[in-house]
């Protein structure tokens, strides 16, 4: 194998990107118009745009998840946070707040949820998976409760600002894509242009060594959960504005699983210690492309779940040392 080929094969970017390309090619071969992009009502339309468009909420949540996983943690409560954020939006709209205030209230709700998780993990030192389970169980109930603050009979709403942010467009490009790109950039700057990323990765990689090197591990972990809460809140704003309603019971069901999956597909290890923001977005796109491709190929949308499961299992299998060894010895036995 030539050196350059080896370098490509060993690069962690290659498999997820290859998977994405492969899915697109398969989808393109099934549906001839797959790559077509049209302009309808002053906005770009087409399958590729649709994949980007629909991947935004998952990608946002996954970015927060990537940061938390970087600290060797996990955040199961993201779906519940989205439910709470949706309920807060509708509640404040019914109360007649200015819509820009509502946006900030929604984000504040997400931050508050993140602070709760961060408190449990960093101050009470509860295992992340257990700590965030609490909000995961209670969060949707809290959302339903907030819905009752205004009677809860009609949770639908109209908001020009929020809907513009979610489903509108600037020139030809959907607003949510532009905003998501802005958030990604901001997060990237925060992680890579301050020392936060280094600290998160060092705490996730070796908390004891980080402490001895002078890093405030507890604070770093806390901040990671707050970031995850904030990003989930943004996803919540987009999803709520998209459906014009607050539905705490079923909104963003299983989104935590998709988000974790996106991080894992993007090469992040649940053992922590590394944050790959760009690859996480690729991971989210892979998941969405799978869904879209399943739909287009005429398979019932439900098959998507099975395909996803098989993808997770094969990714995990390829990552496992034991399985690699077994495959390696099988291959070399063949070769000899």
């Amino acid at each position: 194998m030539p050196v350059w080929l080896k370098a490509i094969v060993q690069s962690r970017a290659v498999w997820p990107v290859l998977a994405l390309v492969l899915i697109l090619i398969v989808a393109g071969s099934v549906s001839p118009n797959f790559f077509e992009i049209r302009i309808v009502e002053g906005r770009l339309f087409g399958n590729l745009i649709d994949i980007l468009y629909r991947a935004v909420p998952t990608a946002l949540v996954a970015l927060g998840m990537a940061v938390v996983i970087g600290t060797r943690g996990i955040d199961l409560s993201v779906g519940s946070i989205i439910a709470i954020v949706g309920a807060v939006i509708v509640w404040r709209i019914k109360m007649g707040d200015p819509h820009i205030t509502i946006l900030f209230s929604a984000l504040a709700a997400g931050i508050l949820c993140g602070m709760w998780n961060g408190f449990l993990v960093s101050a009470l030192r509860i295992q992340p998976i257990i700590a965030t389970l609490i909000l995961m169980v209670a969060g949707r109930g809290i959302g339903m409760l907030i819905n009752q603050l205004y009677g809860g009979t009609d949770p639908s709403f109209e908001s020009a600002l929020l809907q513009w942010m979610s489903t509108g467009s600037i020139w030809l490009i959907p607003t949510r894509l532009i905003l998501a790109a802005g958030i990604f950039l901001a997060l990237w700057l925060l992680i890579r242009r301050t020392a936060l990323g280094l600290f998160i990765e060092s705490v996730g990689g070796n908390a004891a060594a980080s402490n001895l090197a002078g890093v405030k591990a507890g604070l770093i972990i806390f901040v990671a959960y707050v970031l995850s809460g904030l990003l989930s809140a943004w996803a919540g704003v987009i999803m709520t504005a998209d459906t014009h309603t607050s539905d705490p019971v079923s909104v963003a069901l299983y989104i935590e699983l998709d988000a974790i999956l996106a991080v894992v597909i993007g090469g992040g290890s649940l053992a922590g210690g590394r944050i790959y923001l760009g690859m996480t977005v690729i991971g989210a796109l892979v998941i969405q492309a799978l869904t879209t491709a399943t739909l287009i190929s005429g398979l019932p949308p439900e098959y998507n779940l099975i395909i996803k499961a098989l993808v997770v299992l094969s990714v995990l299998f390829l990552q496992s040392a034991n399985a690699r060894k077994a495959i390696g010895s099988l291959v070399s036995r063949r070769a000899s």
């Binding site: 280094l198 060092s202 990689g205 070796n206 004891a208 060594a209 090197a213 890093v215 210690g273």
Partner: peptide, 17 residues
């Protein structure tokens, strides 16, 4: 156990403190 963060690069480990 207490010194290095194995996955981080030499540069990052040196810069940490």
């Amino acid at each position: 156990a207490e010194g290095l963060v194995g996955d981080l690069s030499i540069r990052e480990n040196i810069m940490l403190s």
